[in-house]
Design a protein around this nucleic acid. Sequence first.
RNA 1: GCGCCAGUAGCUCAGCUGGAUAGAGCAUCAGCCUUCUAAGCUGAGGGCCAUUGGUUCGAAUCCAAUCUGGCGUGCCA
Length: 551
Amino acid sequence: MNNSYLTSIFTNCINKLSIDIDLTELQFDTPKDIKHGDLSTNIAMRLTKKLKKSPHLIAQDIIDNLEYDKDLIENISIAGAGFINIKFTNKYYQQELQKIYSAGDEYGKIDIYKGKKINVEYVSANPTGLLHLGHGRNAAIGDTLANIYQWCGADVTREYYFNNAGNQMNNLTKSIYARYMQIIEDENFPFPEDGYHGSYVKIIAEELVKKYDKQLTNIEDKNTFKTIKDFGESWCFDKIRKTLDKMNVHQDIFFNEDSLYKDGKIVDVLSELKEKDLSYEKEGATWFALSKLGLESDRVIVKSTGEPTYRLPDIAYHREKLKRGYDLVVDLFGADHIATVPDVLAGVKALGFDVNKVKVIIHQFVTLMENGEQVKMSKRTGKSYTLDDLLDEVGADVVRYFLIMRSVNTHLEFELSIAREQSDKNPVFYLQYAHARICSILEKLKNENIDLTKIKNADLSYLNDDSEIKLIKTLILFPQMLQIAAEKSEPHILCEYLKDVAAAFHVFYHNCRIIGSEENILISRLLLSNAAKTVLRNGMRILGVSYPEKM
RNA sequence: GCGCCAGUAGCUCAGCUGGAUAGAGCAUCAGCCUUCUAAGCUGAGGGCCAUUGGUUCGAAUCCAAUCUGGCGUGCCA
């Protein structure tokens, strides 16, 4: 945590004392116990070895030489093993609140990624079926991260990569065909062993019957095969896009793997690897010599059938993204894709690109639960709970929030019974309720005989209640929380933070009346409520959750 | 076997670039609505931070080993 005012006065002091220290070690934390002050630093303890003095003596030395504004800092003291604790005055917080109010709707925007071009690739499901909850987590995290980067000043491109060729699509085509034949010819027509068992395949087949009647019985015919495949693909893609739309996920670029072949990028990569002596032929296949790059074993990149494995296009695709000039290329994968990461990165590096510009985020799985029992979501079984079903049932707000409220690298349990519940058990409503409450006050005030323009010149020295100061303290943290969430690529940090904001507001609301208070108090509390509303609304915007004015 | 992720309250999870008495929500129990939305607030109980060692002023956090669960370890993506 940083605090510009404290950093400056401590830096001056350290320079004055001629202490030789890396100033990045100077950090301020919020103590768990409020009795220890508002912020504290362990700098004295960190200096014990270097200065060969007890932390208490060092701390005392620092405090004696600190020059600070007594209007802003109430006191600085030593405690515990040598912590330096700082307590700000209410005036300090009142001033900080004024800054938030001045920033208005823009409050929270920071510029750590200003001028940076960032590409975030997410969802990227092939059009072989419907999206499930795992894709939902990917979509929610990816979309929220993209929002976070934007608030950090970046120029963000949202991308979806898909493959409508290859084995998976052929498999889908054969599956649809089998269902089609079962309808029009023989209900015992054999279903492919590795086929897609999802009930959606039957629906596609039914629609196929409606449109083509019995014209598609010969799958050996290339045109017939293509007709079925194209039909299945566009059916799936249409559903996928509608689902994402429902979830308020909108991507800028839909990149088709196929274009890498058409534009010769696959061949390029292959020949470059060959030139660099990083590929070789064995058993009819082409191998990528990963062992030469420090990895454990070599892998096939072109099968003996002549088709590339996923590694080759993945490498080509990443190279293309980097060529487009992004400063950062973010990939979001489910845990089942982890195996591809080292190979692709090694490939990108071997082709001479900076792998540090590629950031791979792996999220763990989602388990759908209902009253403590696991609900199956598998594509292979006929019965499945799709993302679309879930969006229809509980709405985009709940789905998005539930899927980002946990750290990306923990397994996530999505409890349907709670998601369905429109009550205090459901954490989304806690945030939305706080926002709606504020809006409700503002609405009521319109009917009171009060000059609301006075808010511009509000005298904030009227804000001294513990709950008022606590709320300001929480609101101040917004930009820092955004930065941490961006740097750690962890959207859930914002969820946790907004919960704190809502809680601080609810306590303030409970303790401090607005309507009916003396005018100076009313106006200053109104300003504070407005600031809270701004933070909640901006935060929920980033999460992609709506912020209703009434509930 | 090897690699990645996880193991913290009854349940779901924060905290993990080392700091002071380990937190939240739900569940349980006890309070608070004639005043701006009770989808709220206040309080209580609930813990061997998987286990064992190590590193040091200090370890839930770092290191090692072990145990448990998830996901990988394809000429599938």
